[in-house]
């Protein structure tokens, strides 16, 4: 799109991403002044390492937000997939087939979410909350069937693979961010995601098969969450219930901080990932200040509400309720 007038160009700059970067840097400088241990390779590495697994879930999630949909089942799928792999392996299945099965199961969840939302024009928030409960329930069933058995070492090794002292999950995260961001900006196929989110009716009139794209994106979201969950579970020694807990909440916060809108049509992969890093740093800072876990959640909750409020202010004309 050509922007001839200067004013339009100014409005076209993604201020939210820019401000987020500034805030992140300010926060880093502040924490660096306060704590000697903050700006060390060790600390930074552990923050990035933590994010690298959650980041797999945010890719599809961001695509969905751009299309004006949402997937609150990511946290539950994240939790479920790790358990599912562990469960299959308890029956003697080798690690890779088990992972493939788990990813296929996650894809199936995405198909169900997407098809139902598109076919019956459901509110995706409500639909995926249902799916979230369902998957958490299945996770509980699996956890009860397995007892407290630890994971097999072949499974635990996956997240620990390193390429030149850097965990493979971090390298994969950076590679995927770069590729997806490039595709989102340059490829015609990925641009359709924005068109659908911006104006569904006109996108359909121009021959974009919005329903199919939505279903595919729901699949991408579930599969991404599934992969993240498999990696996160492989990172710990036994599958436990805290994996993926309230992840959907963090995802929404990150996506909206990263410039996505609940009304669709906006957002980018790199910014969502940056926002995730920002949240990681905020949490790290709070840990260093000995803030209690629940108050940490409170802070993230307040960040979310403010972000959504700003998003609402900027989209007044799109409010339907």
């Amino acid at each position: 799109m050509e922007k001839s007038s200067n004013k339009l160009w100014l409005r076209d700059v993604n201020w939210s991403a820019f401000s987020l970067l500034v805030v992140t840097i300010v926060l880093c400088v502040f924490l660096d002044r306060k704590f000697d241990t903050f700006w060390t390779y060790q600390n930074m590495y552990s923050i990035v390492q933590e994010i690298s697994m959650e980041c797999f879930a945010i890719f599809g999630f961001t695509f969905l937000m751009i299309m004006g949909e949402i997937d609150l089942s990511v946290g539950a799928v994240y939790a479920f997939s790790g358990y599912f792999v562990a469960y299959l392996m308890a029956f003697g299945m080798p690690v890779w087939p088990a992972i493939v099965c788990a990813i296929l199961a996650c894809a199936l969840i995405g198909v169900v979410n997407g098809t139902l939302v598109v076919r019956f024009r459901l509110n995706s928030l409500m639909m995926t909350i249902g799916m979230m409960l369902l998957m958490l329930g299945l996770r509980d069933v699996l956890s009860e069937l397995m007892g407290g058995s630890t994971l097999k070492s072949s499974y635990r090794a996956i997240a620990r693979v390193e390429i030149g002292d850097v965990r493979v999950t971090i390298i994969a995260m950076i590679a995927i961010i770069l590729v997806l961001e490039f595709l989102l900006r340059k490829s015609a196929a990925f641009k359709k995601i924005y068109y659908v989110g911006e104006n569904l009716t006109s996108a359909t009139i121009y021959g974009i098969r919005a329903g199919r794209i939505k279903v595919l994106t729901f699949i991408a979201s579930s599969v991404g969450a599934g992969i993240g969950g498999i990696l996160a579970t492989s990172h710990v020694s036994a599958a436990n219930v805290t994996t993926g807990d309230k992840l959907e909440f963090k995802m929404v916060t990150a996506a909206i901080l990263g410039g996505c809108s609940l009304f669709g049509g906006k957002g980018s992969i790199a910014n969502s990932a940056l926002a995730l890093l920002f949240l990681g740093i905020v949490v790290d800072g709070m840990v260093k200040y000995d803030v209690e876990v629940l108050i940490q959640q409170l802070v993230i909750g307040i960040i979310l509400i403010i972000a959504v409020y700003v998003d609402t202010l900027m989209n007044k004309e799109k409010i339907e309720y």
Binding site: L122, G130, M131, L133, L134, M135, L136, G137, D140, V141
Partner: peptide, 16 residues
């Protein structure tokens, strides 16, 4: 142990 799974199932079917 099936409680939450069934609750989720009921919610999904009701929403649909």
């Amino acid at each position: 142990k099936w409680q939450n799974a069934v609750l989720g199932m009921v919610l999904v079917s009701v929403v649909v």
